[in-house]
Structures are given as C-alpha cells and as structure tokens.
Simulated assay, not measured.
Amino acid sequence: MRAWRAYIVGSQMLEYRLHRDLAEEHDLALADYEILVRLSEQPEHRMRMSQLASEVASSKSRVSHQVARLESAGLVRRSECPSDGRGVFAHLTEQGWELLQAAAPTHLDGVRAHLIDLLDDEERAMLTRIFERVTNHLRDANS
C-alpha cells in the first residue's frame, strides 16, 4: 500500500509540476506537448490520429478534441489519409515545431530536476523495467 500511495501522489505531483512549468512559460499543456513531441518524431511530422491516440495512451475522442484545439491555435493541422478515406492524419505545423523547440528545454529541465537527477543509475534502470512491464501488460490486456 505504501508503494502504491507513493506512486499515486508522486506521479500526480510530478505531472502537475511539469504541466505548470509548460503552461506558465509557454502557454502549453503537458498533454498537448506530448502530442507535439509524438508528431515531431514521425516522418513528415505526421501521424494517423488512431496511432497518435495509442502513443499518448488516450482515447481517440480525447485526442480528437486536443488536436482540434491545437489546430485552432495553428500548431497542428489535419488531413484525410489518401489511401483510406476514413483515416485522418495530424500534421505538426511550422508554428507547432517552433513552439515545441522553445518548450522542450523547459520540459527536459523539469523531468531532470524532479525525477531523473533524484535517481541513481540502478534506480533509473529499475524504473524503466517496471514501467515497460506495466505498459506491455496493459497493452496486451487491451489487445
């Protein structure tokens, strides 16, 4: 129970802090930052909406709302998939890329200061193994 409670409180506090830093310095939500990051990592900075939802561990509906908001802000645009009329791509715009480049150091500094630098090499390796196992288990359970 102690481990569970420490995880819940610590992860919520960490997420809140990372979100606050991005919001205060770049007017960007942590969840929106994650979408911009995922798009930036793809060829042509685009991804199918369904894949994007899977990558950020969110529902298709929620990601659709986020992308609509990001599209209104000029950070992302949507287009139909030419090979599948039902598919939709999200594309990172130049404005989205520029915001991501400005926000990334803030986010990385926060992750380092509030998590990574608090752990030694063995603890970082253990954390990686634990959450890869949890993620794989939950993805397999949802397949």
Rank of each mutant, 00 (worst) to 15 (best):
A6S: 09
D109M: 06
R69C: 02
M126K: 12
R17D: 07
R139N: 09
G74P: 01
R46S: 10
E94P: 02
A29D: 00
R78Q: 15
R38Q: 12
D121C: 08
T93Y: 05
R69H: 08
E44P: 00
R133C: 14
D117Q: 11
S11H: 13
Y7H: 13
E15R: 14
V56D: 03
L39E: 01
E25Y: 08
E41N: 03
N142S: 15
N136L: 14
A53E: 06
E25C: 05
L115Y: 14
A31H: 09
S72T: 08
R2W: 08
P82D: 13
I8H: 07
E15A: 14
D140E: 14
E98K: 09
D27L: 13
L22A: 04
A104L: 13
S58D: 10
V88Q: 06
S64C: 02
H114E: 15
A29G: 00
G74K: 04
V67R: 03
W97S: 15
E55R: 10
A125L: 10
E98V: 03
A31P: 03
P82G: 07
R69D: 04
K60M: 15
V56T: 12
A102P: 01
R139V: 15
N136Y: 10
E132W: 11
V63Y: 02
H137C: 11
S54T: 13
D140A: 15
L108V: 12
E122P: 04
M47V: 03
D140V: 07
L36M: 06
Y7D: 07
C81E: 13
M13S: 10
T93R: 01
L138N: 09
